[in-house]
């Protein structure tokens, strides 16, 4: 093959290449051939950037958070004191207000997750199993579209709806917060369940009906066990996003506070970064416990 021909296919024409091109193309081809022969090098090249990002931005930030949580601030000057202390964690665990807030946040996250599962499952089922391919495409777009709109706009839309003279008129508070969060995170529950149901062969549903099972039993014995990993995947999103939220509750929560608010207030108004870090460790801890529990059920084996 003409060495000038491979390389830049499509854009530049081989005939117009300057005289130096063949050698550069040869080098490039040598590199490509080398990569082809060394699977390890290929893997390293592909993974190095994403892994560096994960390592620095994610694990690094988490580590910094954990370290900060063991520091304190000088109560007069407000400056950081970089000496080890358990005081922040003691406060978080022993002061009643923080315990209440932590439990309330957990309750909100659980409620949001359950509501989303209940709403998302029928929707995902209709999308994956009942809709025509054309309708299916439109439904996926319909589920995704709200994600393109600003978080704030959506939260304020709910504020308008929930206000005492609004469409729903519930007023503000925890129920309003749960409803708003359930709405905001719904797509994150629908999409994994939809993907899980897509992978579930239709013949399994036919087979259950063929063997005498009605809808509810087919759901309980075939559909649910096989899509449970997808539900777990969705719940990890809704659960962790709810645990970390502090804006929706500010907009529609009335006087209620969640963990996120405590963190935010301590960083902002109070300027107590170490205490904020200790509080922020709570959701991380809860998520770790949750993931461990999920792992024990074996739901992640099939992911």
């Amino acid at each position: 093959m003409d060495p000038g021909l491979d390389g830049d296919q499509g854009l530049s024409t081989a005939a117009a290449s300057p005289p130096g091109t063949p050698r550069r193309a040869g080098l490039r081809r040598g590199l490509a051939a080398g990569l082809h022969r060394h699977a390890g090098a290929r893997l390293a090249l592909l993974l190095s950037a994403p892994l560096a990002w994960l390592g620095v931005a994610y694990l690094g930030a988490l580590a910094a958070l954990l370290v900060t949580a063991f520091w304190s601030t000088d109560s007069f000057t407000g400056e950081l004191v970089r000496t080890f202390t358990w005081a922040n964690f003691q406060d978080v665990l022993t002061v009643d207000v923080y315990r209440t807030v932590a439990l309330r946040s957990l309750g909100v996250a659980v409620a949001v997750t359950l509501i989303d599962v209940v709403i998302a499952f029928p929707m995902a089922f209709a999308m994956a199993k009942l809709a025509s391919p054309r309708a299916q495409r439109w439904l996926v777009i319909a589920v995704l579209t709200p994600l393109w709109a600003s978080y704030l706009v959506k939260a304020y839309a709910w504020r308008v709806m929930l206000s005492s003279d609004g469409l729903l008129g519930w007023g503000y508070g925890l129920p309003a917060t749960i409803a708003t969060l359930a709405y905001l995170w719904l797509p994150y529950m629908i999409l994994p369940i939809y993907a899980g149901l897509e992978r579930l062969p239709n013949s399994l549903l036919d087979a259950a009906g063929d063997l005498g099972a009605r809808g509810p039993r087919t759901f309980r014995t075939v559909v649910w066990p096989l899509t449970f990993p997808a539900v777990v995947a969705g719940s990890v999103f809704t659960f962790s996003l709810s645990l970390g939220d502090y804006i929706a509750v500010k907009i529609v929560g009335g006087r209620s506070q969640l963990i996120g608010n405590v963190v935010y207030d301590n960083i902002g108004a109070a300027g107590n970064l170490p205490f904020a870090a200790a509080v922020a460790a709570i959701p991380v801890l809860i998520m770790l416990v949750y993931l461990a529990a999920v792992r024990r059920t074996g739901a992640l084996d099939n992911l």
Partner: peptide, 20 residues
């Protein structure tokens, strides 16, 4: 009638065994 109301059973092309 629905499949569960009929006195027939099916062997599916992909067997459709319940994997779990």
């Amino acid at each position: 009638l629905a499949p569960f109301e009929r006195d027939v059973n099916t062997v599916f092309q992909d067997y459709a065994l319940f994997p779990h």
